[in-house]
Amino acid sequence: MDNQMEIKFLSKSENESFARIVACAFVSQLDPTTEEMADIKTAVSEAVTNAIIHGYEGRPDCMVTMRAEMEGDYVSFLIHDSGKGIENIERAMEPLFTTCAEEERSGMGFTVMESFMDDLEVESTLGAGTTVKMGKRILHTKR
C-alpha cells in the first residue's frame, strides 16, 4: 500500500462537505482529472450522507469513519457507521429504492456510487452498522 489515512467525525450534516474535501485532498496526490475528482467527491458524499441520515437517522452525536487507501493508481474509500444497518442490501442498492420518500430522497445514492466508481461493496448488519467500500482507478496519473 502506498498511502493510507483515516478520519472519524461526528454525524453532523456540516461534516458532509468536510469529508468531501478530505477525500479530494487525499486523491489529489494521484493528479486526477477534474472529472475523476468530481466522481470521487460525489460518491463519498453519497456514502457519508447515507451514514448520517439513514445509519444514524439524523442523530448528530455519533461517529462516522472514513478510511482511504492508495495502491498504485487505485484509490479506495471505506465509509463506516455503527448505526441501524440495512435490512436488504440488494434491494437498497436498486435505483430509485428509498425508505425516505417523504423526505424527498430520490433513492439514487447507491446508483451514483456505482456509476461514478469502478468498484462498490456494501456490508451491513442490522442493529450494528454499515460499511461501504468503493474504489476507482485514476487513469490520469503522473506516476
Binding site: R20, A38, K41, T42, S45, E46, T49, E103, E104, R105, S106, M108, G109, V112
Partner: peptide, 13 residues
Amino acid sequence: TFMDSSGIGVIIG
C-alpha cells in the same frame, strides 16, 4: 460547484 442526490431530491420535489 457541487451537487449530489440530495439536489436531485430537491429538484424532483
